[in-house]
Amino acid sequence: MIQDSTYFLPGNRNGVLLIHGLTGTPTEMRILAKGLNAAGFTVYGMQLAGHCGNEEDLCKTTWQDWYQSVEQAADFLATKVDNLFVAGLSMGAVLSLKLAADRPEQIKGVGVYGVTFFYDGWSIPFWAKHSFFLLGWLKKLNLFQKMLFNEQPPYGLKDERIRATVSESMIGGDSAAAGLAGNPLPALAEMQYLVKHVKPLLSQIYVPCLIMHSTDDDIANINTNAGFVQQSIKGRSKLVKLDESYHLITIDRERRTVINETIEFFNDVINGLDNVEDRGHG
């Protein structure tokens, strides 16, 4: 049964919508949420459709369902704030970029954390790196749809203490706290469909983007993912490289850096918006 793991932290009239990753949970964004809220931001940690349940729950949904839940969350948060930002981890970053492309007037800036367009990190087996493109065809042909791509150590975490806690919850079946232990092939196929859809949209993004990525990402290589985004978008961007984390940078060793960089970047955007308004009234 799917559990509701969303959270809303009220603050000022500047809001941040946080989007977790595929098979993940809003919990992986909670530390960042608390940091942003302590700095004054209103924060909504949303839950993607089909998540925080079991593999069957997830496989009933498509990427369009995931994105629809993002749009609904953005609509909700927009009623509470004047300036709306969005930030996501892994697949959540891909969804964040789509929202920025689709809503250029509404979204003021984007936090892009461990963005995953390609599963090509050092922990991904060679055969998997070169077969992900087949997933869409397998789903259309209804082949191997009960298979799972199981998460392997280090589970995106360099910090061994946090890794032990997360893996215990994950393997123990607490998907609301730590996400699923495996990626169902149908969900990975939907992820491929999403990536194919979003890639051409990157050139339509003109809002400022903070791109943060580990140089040692075990899931998504920094050059082909973060570098790809920075080269493709048209707006101002800042790339922050992290050397002491793996994929889940919002909860790994440099989580405080993620918080501080995000606060500084979004506040700079807000100050720029304020200056524009001041000039408009002058």
Rank of each mutant, 00 (worst) to 15 (best):
R163C: 08
D120N: 15
H20F: 11
I270T: 14
K60A: 09
S69W: 00
V115G: 05
K98A: 11
G136M: 04
M91G: 03
E160V: 15
E244L: 11
L248I: 15
R103T: 02
G280I: 07
V16Y: 04
A176R: 10
A33K: 04
E28M: 12
S232K: 08
R279T: 13
D159F: 06
T25C: 03
S214A: 13
R279I: 15
R163A: 14
V115F: 10
K241C: 09
T262M: 09
P125I: 06
A74Y: 02
V276N: 13
A164W: 08
T165D: 13
A39D: 09
G40P: 03
K241A: 11
S214W: 04
M191N: 14
T262H: 06
L17I: 08
V207H: 03
S245Y: 01
E55A: 15
Y206A: 13
V115T: 15
N150S: 11
P125N: 07
L201H: 01
S69F: 03
G45Y: 06
K199T: 11
D216F: 08
A177L: 14
V81M: 07
D218K: 06
L201R: 09
S245M: 03
M147T: 06
K241P: 04
L48D: 03
Y44C: 03
A176K: 12
I259E: 10
V240T: 11
S5D: 08
K140E: 14
D174H: 14
V195P: 00
G21K: 01
V70I: 10
